[in-house]
Structures are given as C-alpha cells and as structure tokens.
Computed example of a mutant assay.
Amino acid sequence: MDKKWLPLTITLGVAGVAVVAASFWPDDVEKPPLPQSLCHGALSRATAELIDDGQGGGEVSAGAWENKGGPTDSAVFKECHVLRAGQDGAKRRGVYKLVVEETRSAPGTKKDSVPLGSGFTGWALPDRAEVTLPTGCAARMGSAAPHITASLEVPSQDEERLYRRGEKPPVDPDTATRDNVTVMREVATRLAERYDCADTD
C-alpha cells in the first residue's frame, strides 16, 4: 500500500469495544479514494447515500463500534452511525444509525409497515426498518441466539418528533420507506455473504 494513503487513526478500546474516532490528513498530502463500503462492509457507499435528512451537504462517512457479542439477548455485534459532512465540508452530523444484534425473539412486524420483499424477512417505515438475517447467520457470527437482526433508525423522519416541532418530514414518507427497504435488503445480503450464511433454498 502507498504510504501516502496511510491515515493517522485514533482508536479507543473500552470494555472490548473498538471505536474508530477520527482520521487526520496533512494539507499537502493527497487523500485516498473514498471507501466504497461503510459499516464494516454492510453498505455500499451508493446505497448508504440514499437516506437523506433534507439538509444537503457533502460526502457520507461512518463511525462504527464493534464487539463479538455476548451472553445477553441484546448483545450488540456492530453499531454504525452514518454521517454527512455539512455544506462547508467540515462539521459532520448524524443521519441514521444501523445496529446488528442477536435476539431470541421471532421476527415480527410493525403497524403500517411495508415488507422488504421476496427473500427477506423484515419491514420498513419512513423512520425505522428491520431485517432478520438468514437462518445460520447467528452461529456463523459467534452467537448462541437463534436470530440476528439489523435495525435502522432515521431520526429526521420520526413522525412524533416532527409533530411536536410542527415540522414536515424532510423526505416524502413513501420515498423514505422505499429507500429504507433498499438499505435493509442490501445490509442483509452483504452480511450474509460476508459470514457465508446466505439461504440456498
């Protein structure tokens, strides 16, 4: 690897959880190409950019937390916050959060949600979505729980929050829901491929 593309990365270890905090680049050194995947490979950059908070801005990046799971039902394997640079390209803001975790609960649904489509177990709303990974993924990911789910939270589309503020959603709810469906289908597909646990039926 070309050494001019090696970043100075700050990594903090807390209770076995690795947190990637920031990278700094000298002004006179060429920056590397933007990574084409985010959230430990769960999302392509193109799909990650679909979800919009209506504030515009620059490039999308991600801050991720990771551990290897644990004995509880809610042990988080990965948590990823997708960020977008501000209009000036400097300050970044959180756009949405993706959490992958083990669960002993059978897959369910939510009122007024739409299904993710053929081959996927999950649902989507404008501000939230969830997908259950294929059978076998839990064991491949080191979990004793029967299921692994990936859940999405998009605060800018939260209907209750918007109502309290007297604001309209930044993105049409139907469009936001379709984008969430696309994101969750890709998350399930890419994680199943990474852990070699895709359904073969």
Rank of each mutant, 00 (worst) to 15 (best):
residue 184 M to Y: 03
residue 85 A to Y: 00
residue 91 K to H: 08
residue 75 A to K: 03
residue 137 C to M: 04
residue 110 K to E: 15
residue 85 A to V: 02
residue 179 D to Y: 07
residue 18 A to M: 13
residue 54 G to M: 09
residue 16 G to D: 08
residue 59 E to N: 11
residue 78 K to E: 15
residue 91 K to D: 11
residue 31 K to Q: 12
residue 85 A to S: 12
residue 63 G to A: 14
residue 132 T to W: 13
residue 38 L to T: 00
residue 153 E to A: 14
residue 68 K to E: 12
residue 117 G to N: 03
residue 84 R to K: 07
residue 151 S to P: 00
residue 110 K to R: 15
residue 112 D to C: 00
residue 4 K to C: 03
residue 175 T to R: 12
residue 141 M to Q: 14
residue 24 F to W: 15
residue 31 K to D: 00
residue 1 M to E: 12
residue 31 K to A: 07
residue 1 M to C: 08
residue 69 G to Y: 09
residue 92 R to K: 13
residue 146 P to N: 12
residue 57 G to T: 02
residue 35 P to E: 10
residue 195 Y to G: 05
residue 97 K to V: 14
residue 70 G to L: 06
residue 137 C to Y: 10
residue 180 N to P: 08
residue 23 S to Q: 15
residue 160 E to P: 00
residue 97 K to Q: 15
residue 198 A to T: 10
residue 124 A to H: 10
residue 10 I to S: 09
residue 32 P to R: 07
residue 189 T to K: 09
residue 98 L to R: 05
residue 43 L to K: 02
residue 193 E to T: 05
residue 19 V to R: 11
residue 3 K to S: 13
residue 171 V to Q: 06
residue 36 Q to V: 09
residue 52 D to F: 07
residue 108 G to D: 10
residue 61 S to W: 08
residue 197 C to N: 00
residue 40 H to Q: 13
residue 72 T to M: 09
residue 113 S to G: 05
residue 90 A to W: 12
residue 110 K to G: 00
